[in-house]
Design a protein around this nucleic acid. Structure first.
Lengths: 331, 331
DNA sequence: TTGAAAGCGCTAACAT
DNA sequence: ATGTTAGCGCTTTCAA
């Protein structure tokens, strides 16, 4: 940085202020400094900056690696978060879901200025650790006890209500909810619960028959759940499905069972829009806005890092329904 | 660190050397220092350490986010790499596949000491950038021109040969190779080519009939490729499939077409073992050792970071075949 | 609007 | 086997 200062004929601190923008610099000076930076190919040293400013310009991102998460969805969050961080000139340090002590270490050493934690569980053992840290954090997901933490999550209740509303508007009167695998339910009681509750409430309000099932992924499980649906509600004419891993198989399973989508049964999926669009028969869906949630999580974290202390905040993100090929008006 | 030194009754540098292990310390001294560290809850500052030592103790990991990669497989590499890095006390900075300039920045600023680049393409535009960096790198994948770079990849040629050998031993004589989608072929000419070549060579050597197809993922495409197989080789009795995204659908497609696995047709998949095991009918497979490759990539990088300069090196990792439910002796 | 200079908390060369 | 000390390359207060 000394070289740059010399080349531009200014002091070292002026170069620093040009870089950080924390001081008003006259246009000509700024210009000279910037061209000197380019000419010398200067790039400020991250370690020195971190030491002097006590900010690493890096956030931690805790990513789940357990086999029961849908990595397609996870990667959408991750991609959005990384993009959002880059946009404000922050790096992203990869932390694993399991590694609570690792998080403690990088936080204590000043390697990160904040944490975004994905796939938060209902009673997540990492929450106490998080609360102890001296750096801010944002959770993606909604634990039982939010304490003073900041959270953001998809509004599953609203999504289910919207889905049911759509089916009712299409004059469907016998609807079934196909939810996430049992394992997800136990880990994330909350979100599964919210989705189911929204469904039940909306169906009750509308005065229509309803049934709630959960399902593992895979073709066999898909066929099973279709079979169970037909035996418990033979005149089913509407389905709400909230299970990303099941989607690729559900249409095939319905086809084999002779259940015609969308003529006989209209289906609304709760899943990211790009998954809904990619299906052979594109799903009508309430799209989980993974991109928006990932980006917002980072934005919330940023305002806690360099803004004034923010109050705890729990944000629920809703989404509209997009009609596609799997739902039409009942005959 | 001064506090720790005082509490332990030693000098500041002794604390530093206890931490880094770069000096032999007498047992009692080390003990006093370590207990002082624990007592004070001391954790060394990463920025200061990076500044003084010119090492960030962080590696960059370039992860692909394009929709045409299989994220299940990607995450296995990532998980293995992160675990390996943690094991030697290194952090992992997440870089996106697209972000060549971002890589340049973090390298120039001293934020990372080395890079592991996943999903390397045949003519990857980032390779020139990588070669310019002053930090070492390791590629996962095999580009056209390796230059002076270090690479590691799965030995697809050997895998195909092993698969064909297995089918031949089961007295299969009419075999088809179902490969990756066309898009993967254009991006990664090399690996697809190697897999196909190994297949063709082995089938030719064994003197059996053979056919090579490629296939998109999804149930419809799976049915199509089965149909094409049957029309071009009605007496097919062996399949080698190298297409992770297709696997969940292939058994269903065969079932629908009346192709009985494994009685009528024996199938060998080239895919990570855990994918092969998870199928309803577990695949006989040549398992891509994602875990090993990810870990080895990090090990190779580490030896280039703190060891003496290493020569360029291209490493191919082979794997054994594990017989499972999709292959038996021909009648 | 700009400059001078005192650290930030470590590492490692040089001592002993 | 341990201590002393000069930086590492920035940020930021204080001064002009």
């Amino acid at each position: 940085m000394g070289d740059v200062a010399e080349a531009a004929g200014v002091s070292l601190s002026t170069v620093s202020y040009v870089l950080s923008g924390k001081r008003t610099i006259s246009a000509p000076t700024r210009e000279r400094v910037e061209s000197a930076i380019r000419a010398l190919g200067f790039s400020p040293n991250a370690g020195a900056r971190a030491l002097a400013s006590r900010k690493s310009h890096t956030i931690g991102l805790m990513v789940p690696f357990s086999p029961d998460v849908d990595f397609t969805v996870v990667m959408q969050f991750v991609g959005a978060a990384v993009t959002a961080a880059r946009a404000v000139d922050y790096n992203v340090l990869l932390l694993t879901h399991e590694d609570g002590s690792g998080m403690k270490r990088v936080a204590a050493s000043g390697s990160i200025d904040g944490v975004v934690m994905m796939d938060v569980e209902y009673d997540d053992p990492r929450l106490p650790v998080l609360a102890q840290l001296s750096i801010p954090s944002v959770l993606i997901g909604m634990p039982r006890d939010v304490g003073g933490l900041a959270c953001i999550d998809f509004d599953f209740t609203q999504a289910s209500r919207t889905a049911v509303g759509h089916l009712v508007a299409l004059r469907r009167r016998n609807v079934v909810f196909i939810g996430s695998p049992a394992q997800a339910l136990t880990r994330h009681v909350n979100y599964a619960e919210r989705a189911v509750n929204g469904f039940v409430d909306a169906a009750t309000d509308a005065g229509i028959r309803h049934l709630e099932l959960s399902c593992e992924p895979g073709l066999a499980a898909a066929e099973e759940v279709v079979f169970e649906t037909l035996s418990r509600m033979p005149d089913v004419d509407g389905i709400v499905v909230h299970n990303e891993a099941l989607l690729p198989f559900l249409q095939a399973a319905c086809g084999r069972a002779g259940v015609e989508i969308p003529r006989q049964v209209s289906v609304v999926a709760i899943c990211p829009d790009n998954l809904a669009e990619a299906a052979p028969l594109p799903w009508t869906s309430v799209g989980i806005p993974t991109e928006l949630i990932g980006r917002t999580a980072v934005d919330m974290l940023m305002s806690r890092i360099d803004g004034e202390p923010q109050p705890p905040e729990q944000r629920l993100v809703g989404a509209p329904l997009t009609p596609r090929a799997t739902s039409i008006q009942a005959a």
